[in-house]
Amino acid sequence: MIDVDRLLGTTTVTSLRPSYEGANIGTIIGFKHVNYLVEQAILDHFRAAGAPAGRMYEDYGVGFDVVELDSRLQTALIVDDVVEAEVTPKGADDTGIRFAVALHVERDGAPKKAVTSKARVALRADERGSARRPLPDALRPLVIDRITATGQAVPAIDPAIHMAGKDGDAVIAALTEGRNAYGWKYRIPYFYCHFFERMQMSGYLRQMEEVVDLFLADRGLAIKQLLDERNWIPAVTRSHVRILGETLMEEELYTIYSVSDVFKDLLYTSTMDCYVVRDGVLVHTATGSITHAYGTVDNGCDGQLVTFDERVQRALHGAATA
């Protein structure tokens, strides 16, 4: 039985380990897998309240969807870390259940806060799911028919952009025209989705990870090139993804990535916006941002941040690199 009071009002603590897959450079865990830990901690919070995601779907026909993650990375997570995750409910309304999540690791014999995250979970009714049991009355107002950005400010789409009859290259050209931006079209595979049809949060995190890689290569700052030349790697200090609507399996997703700010030669922030074209209409399905620095890494995990030189500055601002 679901303990709604515990789900919506009690902090839980769980121990997790990062996935080995996330250690791509040395032993440091990348931002995508850091966010996976946040999602896993919230799933454990639901389990502790008697509401595991599988049973919610099987018994009540309700899907668990993380629809927003805003994570700040303060200390690098290492592949062998034991992560203590603290999940605190922060209220609920028709946009979902909000949580604050803190990830702690041990450093020099003492606990240290490594990540703080704000998250939101939507409970989405699913026509394929069965409803073998009545949903608890306290949760019924939180179940939605479709994931939308209801009650939130949605970035505006230029009404002059009309997509009917345009091919993929033309859509990207329209979305990037006059901007310091990079565009990418990708057919959404089934393994980015869940509950039979819709893209889940991990799929958007994958999009963000890959579009950064493609952008940097396009600007002459390919990851391997800077590793070989300078021992530089990108280091994420913050990532934010918000789902605005549903992207469906096998749709063509247009991901637009644009540098929005460069701060003191140390950090740069970029935006990510995701779109699909349905019946000739451009639909904005997700938005987000990511803040990067560059750092050097020695002995697998130890390193320090570096300042951007002219080459990096020119590339980030859209100028050609030598």
Rank of each mutant, 00 (worst) to 15 (best):
V283I: 14
R72T: 12
G61W: 04
R124Q: 12
V13E: 12
M56P: 06
L267F: 15
A217P: 00
V62P: 05
P52I: 05
V297K: 11
A315F: 05
E39K: 04
H284V: 05
A156N: 03
E252I: 01
L69K: 02
A235K: 07
R120L: 04
T247A: 15
G30P: 03
L139V: 10
D5I: 01
D169Y: 12
G109F: 01
L175V: 10
S15V: 13
P159T: 05
F196V: 13
V62R: 03
I223C: 08
G129I: 03
F99R: 00
E84R: 15
T269D: 04
L248K: 13
A125F: 08
A149L: 09
V262Q: 03
R146A: 15
R206H: 05
T296M: 15
L282K: 09
E310H: 11
R128P: 07
V67D: 00
M1Y: 01
Q200Y: 07
I28S: 03
E229G: 06
T321W: 00
D108G: 00
L214G: 01
M201Y: 06
K166P: 02
K166T: 10
V143F: 08
T150P: 00
T75S: 07
D302T: 12
D265M: 08
A149E: 08
Y36W: 06
G280V: 11
L77T: 05
D265C: 02
E58M: 11
I256Y: 04
I161D: 07
A131Y: 01
G280P: 08
T291K: 09
Y57H: 13
S260C: 06
T247I: 01
T285Q: 05
V143K: 06
T247W: 00
V83I: 13
P134C: 04
Y60P: 02
E86Y: 08
V283D: 13
T307F: 14
R278G: 01
A286F: 10
I29F: 08
Y257H: 14
A319Y: 14
I97S: 01
